[in-house]
Amino acid sequence: MNKSTFLGTLAVGALAAGIASAQTLNDVQSRGELNCGVSTGVNGFSAPDANGVWQGFDVAVCRAVAAAVLDDPNAVNFVPTTGQTRFTALASGEVDMLARNTTWTFSRDVDLRFTFTGINYYDGQGFMVDRGLGVSSATELDGATVCIQTGTTTELNLADYFRVNGMDYEPVPIETNAEAQQQYLAGACDVYTTDVSGLAATRASFENPGDHVILPEVISKEPLGPLVRHGDDQWADIVRWVLNALIAAEELGVTSTNLAELAAGTNNPEINRLLGTEGNLGEMFGLDNEWAVRALAVGGNYGEIFAANIGEQTPIGLARGLNAQWTQGGLMYSPPFR
């Protein structure tokens, strides 16, 4: 049976549970803790450090939501989920939200009955090859052996791309990113394909990163974002607008350093509405008006979180690219706070 059909069946089975627990906000507040599903380890996005504290770009979203709702960025219970368990964990109510570099697709949104609350990273699938091969474009990859993680959308994208371009390839199925690195470095495959952010993180860990080149072609759209269950729009709104607040804060120039100063009131009404000195936006979805101040106090705005976890100053070294603000030529665009 097709995996998504199976998960869909499970999700439909959980519908009753979903409707019954439409008050996620109340549940979270009475529990005093946010259950946030993360991946079991993706460099820069979510991983425990040596002290067992979860760090990363996806983790920061969980912490911002926890700070907005519970006034404590550490009141998060991080639930590690695998690619197989993530959707059932969310559908069954084991986690309140999922921030686990999950691609927003039609079937996940509609058929699995989830609500994607925005996009915190625009990714796309790319290829990495050894510079020595002299390949400069993915269209020259005819007949290549390709290391590919099984059971992911990347596998399907790869098949589509090679078919459209009339090329052949030989897949080398692998299970984890670490295994892929070993196989690729050992020469078991000519090409490693996964999301470009993953390729960059992987390449950064090589002994000689300069020997490997990430090809310019990006063959798929992988909009990654946090998601919640269908059926609780209030909770979906909270997660959506916490993410929007992080993005809008960068656009409006609100940073962790000037946050306290700006939260006292400014001449810019948009900043005032965001930070709660004007209007009562927070009360509209059941929080107080300082929710965004608290969310921003955790790790700063979207740009600061990006720079601290995966930006060019980190070993992963990702450029903003598509993830720059719309004013900077990127796609990050928050609806107005009004």
Partner: peptide, 26 residues
């Protein structure tokens, strides 16, 4: 149990490799 997201030694080895310090350790 690594397949259901419990961090046993194998699961932790994946999580450890996901930190920037130790990515590439196998």
């Amino acid at each position: 149990v690594v397949f259901i997201g419990l961090l046993d030694p194998i699961g932790l080895s994946n999580a450890i490799r996901a930190s920037s310090d130790w990515q590439g350790i196998y």
